[in-house]
Amino acid sequence: MIELQQLCRDFLIGDQTVHALDHLDLTIDSGEYLSVMGPSGSGKSTLLNMLGLLDRPSSGEYLLNTQVTSSLKEEQRAALRRDHIGFVFQSYHLLPRLTARENVELPLVLAGVAPKIRQATVDELLRRLDLSDRAAHNPSQLSGGQRQRVAIGRAIIMEPDLLLADEPTGNLDSKSGLEVMALLEELNAGGITLLVVTHDEEMGARAQRRLHMVDGRINQDWRPGRTERI
């Protein structure tokens, strides 16, 4: 369960203050599937960074699973990210010197999980992601769709509650893009709360709940059966 209360994020550009997020209120239930759309600079990515605890609000409050996050120290926020939040990026953010397998394994390595447990977990995940035969390849040897699948594997290996995807299909051809979306939706069906930031109307339309942002505000919160204008 996620709750944003009057959340603001201001940036100072030159001597001008830009309200990337402007007194945002938002509640997301566990297991929801949301898309966030809107023009560039409307605050979509800032919202995603805020939800992912990568950024701190200028004011307002963010409750993750009823926990107040504004008072948390950086180390505690890191632990929350590690245990509860997965990220999928447009540009994959794979480490080029690691193999596909090692990229998927990375969160477990960073968390100090024993190699034996890691091995079994990664094997299983790679198999389910249909990447077993690409495990020893470096990212540069993989197709875009495969890279994004590796990135998704990395995002979910710690079994997060919340999966945040920033333009996950932005660098992919339409076929790979659809495969990736199908994979994310499959994860959502398994219980993960899924939030996808996208420019692509078609991809955005797949979500059960669609947010539209303009100037740091949500101007449309669409759910099946009702349209809510704010």
Binding site: D83, V109, A111, G112, V113, T121, M158, L187, G190, G191
Partner: peptide, 30 residues
């Protein structure tokens, strides 16, 4: 169809509380 989430097995968030990289992993990473 919960195929991919909850991949099961012995890992769970609670076990990561230590959250320190193993020395060997650190050396290998470096």
């Amino acid at each position: 169809m919960a195929v991919l989430t909850r991949i099961g097995g012995p890992v769970g968030p609670k076990e990561y509380e230590q959250a320190l990289m193993r020395v060997y992993d650190l050396l290998a990473f470096n």
